[in-house]
Structures are given as structure tokens and as C-alpha cells.
């Protein structure tokens, strides 16, 4: 479904862990952050940023 709008499904992941797996939680967070950092911002982030920039410049122009 994400593919339809040009978002890489690798940006979404599911993990299984129990309440006792504190270290695993830290591990998952580190791993996943590294993966996303490598992929860069989401295409929607770029789009929203561009939009924000144009609204700001519009306001300045006015």
C-alpha cells in the first residue's frame, strides 16, 4: 500500500518482544534509526518541507 504513494515499505517494521527485553528494545531502536538514517528523509517529508517553504515565502512577499 505504501508503494502506491512512493514510500519504501522498508520504512515500516514489526518486532516482537517481551517486557523483560529492555536491551533488545534499545537494540531495535538503534538498528531501526540506523536504517532510516541511511534511507534519508521520507519523500513526504520533502514534499511537506517544500510546501512550508513556499507558504513562508508567500507570506514574505505579501
Amino acid at each position: 500500500m505504501l508503494l502506491l504513494v512512493g514510500v519504501d515499505p522498508a520504512r515500516l517494521e514489526f518486532f516482537n518482544l517481551s517486557a523483560a527485553q529492555g536491551p533488545r528494545w534499545a537494540e531495535i531502536c538503534t538498528e531501526f534509526t540506523a536504517r532510516i538514517a541511511e534511507k534519508g528523509p521520507s519523500p513526504i517529508w520533502y514534499a511537506l518541507k517544500k510546501k512550508k517553504e513556499t507558504t513562508v515565502s508567500d507570506k514574505q512577499a505579501a
Binding site: P43, I44, A47
Partner: peptide, 15 residues
């Protein structure tokens, strides 16, 4: 709801 969300994402990407 899902379709609306997908369409919003497409709209923001295509400006």
C-alpha cells in the same frame, strides 16, 4: 479513511 490518507500523501508529493 485509508484511501483518503493515501490520496493526501499523493497530493502532498505532487504539490
Amino acid at each position: 479513511e485509508i484511501l483518503a490518507s493515501l490520496l493526501r500523501m499523493r497530493a502532498s508529493q505532487e504539490d
